[in-house]
């Protein structure tokens, strides 16, 4: 099982080399992926799974796309 990982803004340095096919175990959560990427505590305030805002306890599936953003604003 693999997912696509996207780390944006100040989290960009955490983007893994295999971001387009990042392997996950069955039942793996967003929180576990964040641990593996070493996203600091509270560092990702916005998490998107397949373009929808989700919480860290979301269980991922094969082919999902996960985006991580730090706190940000604009407009």
């Amino acid at each position: 099982m693999t997912i696509t990982v996207k780390c944006f803004a100040s989290l960009a340095p955490l983007q893994p080399k295999n971001a387009g096919a990042f392997p996950i175990a069955p039942g793996e959560t967003v929180a576990r992926v964040m641990e593996r990427l070493r996203v600091p505590e509270g560092g990702a305030s916005l998490i998107f799974v397949n373009n929808v805002h989700r919480q860290p306890d979301t269980v991922l599936r094969d082919g999902d796309t996960v985006g991580f953003f730090p706190p940000l604003g604009g407009g």
């Binding site: 100040s10 916005l46 953003f69 940000l72």
Partner: peptide, 24 residues
């Protein structure tokens, strides 16, 4: 505040392009 103290100074308002694109 992380937005006014960090996010906006570092990338400006255009940091939203990736966010709004990701949100569809």
């Amino acid at each position: 505040h992380p937005v006014t103290g960090e996010g906006l100074p570092a990338y400006g308002t255009n940091v939203l392009t990736n966010v709004i694109n990701e949100a569809g």
